[in-house]
Nucleic acid binder design. Structure first.
Lengths: 235, 235
DNA sequence: TCGCCTGTGATTGGATACAACAGCTCGACT
DNA sequence: AGTCGAGCTGTTGTATCCAATCACAGGCGA
C-alpha cells in the first residue's frame, strides 16, 4: 500500500531540511496559528528549526511562490493577506479545476483509494466531534488534495495545492461565522458519488460544495483592519 | 502607453538581478537554444551573468518550481525533459483554462488592449516572414500570456505562465514537422473574436487552436533518447 | 509642540568559505 | 583482461561573514 507513494524529484515525503521548514510553516499558517500579516523573521524561524538562514530563505521563497507568504524587499517575509479580489479569483479557479479533478479521480477509482477516502472522512468526522478546529481546517484542505492525488494529474495537483493553501488563509480572514461544520457532509457526498462512479453527480456536488464555502465568506472590499478604521473615521 | 505596466511586488519587468538570470535562462530554454537534459551548472551561469552562486541558485529554484528545470539533489539543475504523459497533462490543463481566460479577456476588452493584441500579431507575422523560428516560438507563447494578462486574473496568469513554458519544451521535443506556421492565423482568428466580443467563438477557436498544436505532436512514450537506445538493443 | 533630520540597532541581501557528495581516473588484485 | 576499490576532482549543499537597507529613537530647530 505504501508502494503507491512515488519517490520522484518532487519529494512528496520531504526528508530534507528545507521541506521540514516549509511544511512546518505551512502547517502553522493553514491551521491558523500564524495570522495574516505576521512577520516571519529569518533568524527567528531558523532558531526554531535549528537551521541557518540560508535554508530558511529557501523555504520562504518557495512559500512566496505558493502565494501564502509575501516577501517585501529589504523588509522580510510576512504571512500573506489575500484581498477579496484574490479570494474571488481563487474560488473561481477552484470551481473551474476541481470538477475536472473529480472526473479524473473517478477514472482512477480503486478499492485502495476508496479506503483512503473513507478513512479520511472518518478522521475529519473525529476531529469535528472533538471540536479540534485546527485539525478540521487542515483535514478539510487535505481532502481536496487527496482527490487531486487520486486523479493522477500532477499538474492539477500542483495547482490545487496552491489554491488550497490560499483558500485556507481566505477562510480565516473572511469567514462570517466560525461554525466549523463547513463541509464534512459535502465531502461524504462527494465520496459517495465517486464510489458510484457517477461523474455528473460528483461534479455537481463538488461545485456546490465550493459555492457554499464561498457563500459563507464576507468579501467586502475594505475588509482589512486598517481600512475598516478609515471607514469608521470618515463616518 | 508604458503607463500600463504595473509596478507591483511581482515585478513583471524585473529590474533585479535574479529576474535577469531567470528570464535569460527561460528565454534560452523557450527559444530552444538550451536543449532538454542540458546541465545548468551554477558557476557556469554565474559567470555568464556576473553573479554569485547565491543568485543563480535562487533563479534556478524558481525555474524548477515553474517546471522547466529539474533539480536533482547533489547533482545539479538540468533543463527539464517532459514525458509524453506530462505533455498530455499540460495540454489538457490548457484546454481547461484558456477558454475561460479568453472569456475574461473579452470582459476586459478596450481599445488599448486591442492595439496591443494587434501589434503582437504584427510582430508574430513579421518574425514568421523573416523565418526567425526562435522569435516565432517565443512570440507564440507570449500571445497566450498576453491574453491572460488581459483577463486580469492573476492566478490564471500564473498558472498559464507555467503551462506555456512547459509547452514550449514539449513542442521542441515532440513536434513532428518543424513547420513554424503553427498558429499565427489561429491567433488572428482569436483576436478577431475578441474584438467582436464573441465569447462563444473565442472559446471555440482557442480550443481548436490548442487541439491543433497537440495534434501536431508525436506523443509516443519511449521518446527519450536513452529509452530509444534500450529499444534498439533489445531488438 | 510639532516636524525634520540624523544616528543607531536590527534585519535582510549577497558573497564567500567550508563541508559533503557524486563521478571519474588510475591502479591493484583476481 | 576485466573488475573492484581508493583517492582525486569538480560540483553542490550549508554556514557564516560583510554590506546595504530599513525602522525607530533621540535631538535639533522652527
Amino acid at each position: 500500500m505504501a508502494a503507491k507513494t512515488r519517490q520522484k524529484a518532487d519529494a512528496p515525503d520531504a526528508s530534507d531540511r528545507v521541506s521540514r521548514i516549509r511544511e512546518g510553516v505551512t502547517a502553522a499558517i493553514l491551521e491558523h496559528r500564524l495570522l495574516p500579516g505576521t512577520k516571519l523573521g529569518e533568524d527567528e524561524i531558523g532558531e526554531i528549526y535549528g537551521a541557518s538562514r540560508t535554508l530558511v530563505r529557501t523555504a520562504l521563497q518557495q512559500l512566496a511562490h505558493e502565494g501564502i507568504v509575501n516577501i517585501e524587499k529589504n523588509r522580510g517575509a510576512f504571512v500573506a493577506r489575500p484581498t477579496p479580489a484574490d479570494a474571488r479569483e481563487v474560488f473561481e479557479a477552484r470551481r473551474l479545476i476541481e470538477p475536472t479533478i473529480v472526473d479524473h479521480a473517478i477514472d482512477a477509482v480503486s478499492p485502495a483509494w476508496l479506503d483512503r477516502l473513507q478513512q479520511h472522512l472518518a478522521e475529519e468526522h473525529e476531529a469535528e466531534l472533538r471540536g479540534d478546529a485546527r485539525a478540521s481546517v487542515r483535514l478539510s484542505g487535505e481532502f481536496h488534495k487527496l482527490v487531486a492525488e487520486m486523479s493522477g494529474h500532477s499538474i492539477y495537483l500542483g495547482f490545487l495545492k496552491e489554491l488550497i493553501a490560499r483558500s485556507s488563509l481566505i477562510i480565516l480572514l473572511y469567514r462570517r461565522h466560525d461554525t466549523p461544520a463547513c463541509g464534512t457532509d459535502h465531502h461524504a457526498g462527494i465520496v459517495s458519488a465517486i464510489r458510484k462512479r457517477d461523474k455528473q453527480a460528483a461534479r455537481v456536488q463538488m461545485l456546490s460544495h465550493l459555492n457554499e464555502i464561498e457563500a459563507e465568506l464576507f468579501l467586502k472590499d475594505p475588509a482589512a483592519d486598517e481600512l475598516r478604521l478609515a471607514d469608521v473615521l470618515s463616518a
